[in-house]
Amino acid sequence: MSIETSTQEAQRYAFICSRGTLDGAYPALILAINARRLGHEAFVFHTFMGINAVRKGKLEKFQFYPPGFLGAIPGMSQVATMMMKKQIDGAGIPDLPELQETAQLEGVRLIACRMTLDMMKLGKDDLIDGVEIMNAEQYLKLAGTCSINMFT
């Protein structure tokens, strides 16, 4: 099945990253980068544990936690993370820090949730360069102008 690309004017896409895991961060970044490459505006709002994706020195430590019973087995997240990173590398997919840098270079707006920062007692200095901070009301006003809003 073929999907035709649209020639309509630029749209706005918003993605919400709420998990500080490999499988929480990759989808938002990949979708946002591809939205930009299609000529659209793209935003990634980081909230709750997803805030760690925009904290200095945290993204490199993201892991994969297998769902269900497997995730409860001691050491399984380390094994699963190693396996997942090997698959990512084997598929030629950039690691998260490189992907995030690409997103920023291509104009994806990274946004940190004000409430999450306050809750975790974090400030602007704890975040990587270029991250905006918005409260829920500000983000909802932005998201209301978007064609697509998606949790990842």
Rank of each mutant, 00 (worst) to 15 (best):
41 E>P: 01
41 E>G: 02
41 E>Q: 08
42 A>W: 03
42 A>T: 09
42 A>M: 02
43 F>Q: 00
43 F>G: 01
44 V>Y: 07
45 F>L: 05
49 M>Q: 13
50 G>L: 06
51 I>P: 01
51 I>L: 15
52 N>K: 12
53 A>P: 06
55 R>N: 10
55 R>E: 04
55 R>T: 06
56 K>C: 05
58 K>V: 00
58 K>I: 00
60 E>D: 10
60 E>R: 06
60 E>C: 05
61 K>G: 08
61 K>P: 00
62 F>A: 10
62 F>T: 04
62 F>R: 06
62 F>G: 03
63 Q>K: 15
63 Q>L: 12
64 F>D: 02
64 F>G: 08
66 P>T: 15
66 P>M: 08
67 P>E: 10
68 G>S: 08
70 L>P: 09
70 L>G: 11
72 A>H: 14
73 I>A: 02
74 P>I: 07
74 P>Y: 13
75 G>W: 07
75 G>N: 03
76 M>R: 07
77 S>D: 10
77 S>E: 09
79 V>N: 07
79 V>Y: 13
80 A>C: 06
80 A>N: 04
81 T>M: 05
81 T>N: 03
82 M>N: 12
82 M>Q: 14
86 K>Y: 11
86 K>E: 15
87 Q>G: 12
87 Q>C: 04
88 I>S: 05
89 D>R: 14
91 A>C: 11
91 A>R: 14
91 A>G: 10
91 A>T: 11
92 G>S: 07
94 P>F: 11
95 D>W: 13
96 L>M: 07
96 L>R: 12
96 L>I: 11
96 L>Q: 11
96 L>P: 15
97 P>C: 07
97 P>H: 06
98 E>N: 15
98 E>S: 13
98 E>C: 08
102 T>S: 05
103 A>F: 04
104 Q>Y: 01
104 Q>N: 04
106 E>C: 01
106 E>Q: 06
108 V>P: 01
109 R>D: 00
112 A>S: 04
113 C>H: 08
113 C>Y: 09
114 R>C: 09
115 M>T: 10
115 M>A: 12
117 L>G: 04
117 L>V: 03
121 K>W: 09
122 L>Q: 09
124 K>H: 11
125 D>I: 09
125 D>P: 04
125 D>Q: 10
126 D>L: 01
129 D>V: 05
129 D>E: 13
130 G>E: 03
131 V>L: 02
131 V>G: 03
131 V>F: 03
131 V>H: 08
132 E>C: 06
132 E>G: 04
133 I>V: 13
133 I>C: 05
134 M>Y: 14
134 M>S: 06
136 A>C: 13
137 E>L: 08
137 E>N: 14
137 E>H: 13
138 Q>A: 14
139 Y>A: 02
139 Y>G: 01
140 L>S: 02
